[in-house]
Design a binder for these strands. Structure first.
Ligand SMILES: [Mn+2]
Ligand SMILES: [Mn+2]
Ligand SMILES: [Zn+2]
Ligand SMILES: [Zn+2]
Lengths: 138, 138
DNA sequence: AGAGTGGTGCAACAGAAGTGCATTTAATGG
DNA sequence: CCATTAAATGCACTTCTGTTGCACCACTCT
């Protein structure tokens, strides 16, 4: 049993061939991926399978969905310490307008916001747009 | 020349009948609207016209586009003091999971975030999800 | 081996976003 | 006021993402 199989098993997700491939693909990427990205990465991939796999992964806390403002859902593996299911790991995301990549800034949490009376916060999404470190000549 | 016509004229947008109607509709709403919302509000509305009108409005700083995480673009009129075009009026938005309405919290600005080295911020989007004041029994 | 559960593949659909082009509308100049 | 002309609109069509139904396949458990 490989490391990935163990990870999936821990989250009660049956480690099928396809799921392991998808997990591996996402683990190898530094940035969040869209469903289409995965689809293009494999010749023999069904969009539906990917779609449902990502949904399963999300429900089981293996990946989290990211809305980076492009109106295309992105997904990224949850980090070891990230409790996405429970109290939401409210880290922020960065979307680069140049390379169009979206990355998790896991260390940077969303600050607490005071809302007007009557408003109850349950979740938050903060996306910074700009130029990423790869695209800026830093 | 009505107040609305003056507003459009100030932003160098020709105040056509349709544009005035759309502007009025948005001004009467307390929440951000989707293109479909406007389409449904008028019997005789072409989606394309609405689409291009909103785009024009956005380019001229009359409305700003809001990405509230539903993957459906919402639009809201810019407030008098809001400089959406220039240095981005970084107020936050609230999306209610119950009534599905999205509102501008114009008074609540997005706090400054320190990014890792190499990252250059140009824009930011912060959406809080939860229960709005109308839906909570405040 | 057979039953049963869950995963996958295929087809089809829904909805939003976007484009090309013909036609209408409205501002402008004579 | 009418003709000219550019902008705005209406219509048809396309693309892309997301989503569902259903049949088939794979694995597990008895
Ligand atoms: Mn993330
Ligand atoms: Mn707003
Ligand atoms: Zn970049
Ligand atoms: Zn509400």
């Amino acid at each position: 049993m490989t490391e990935i199989e163990k990870t999936l098993d821990n989250k009660s997700v049956r480690p099928t061939a396809m799921r392991i491939l998808i997990y591996k693909f996402m683990a190898g990427k530094q940035n969040a991926v869209a469903l289409t990205d995965i689809e293009n990465a494999f010749e023999k991939a069904e969009r539906t399978t990917l779609y449902r796999t990502l949904k399963t992964f999300e429900e089981k806390g293996i990946v989290h969905q990211i809305d980076d403002g492009t109106n295309i859902s992105k997904f990224a593996l949850c980090q070891p310490g990230c409790n996405c299911e429970i109290d939401q790991d409210l880290h922020l995301h960065f979307h680069c307008g140049q390379c169009d990549k979206t990355v998790c800034l896991t260390e940077h949490k969303i600050p607490h916001i005071n809302l007007p009376a009557g408003y109850i916060a349950e979740d938050a999404n903060l996306v910074i747009k700009g130029i990423c470190d790869s695209c800026s000549d830093h």
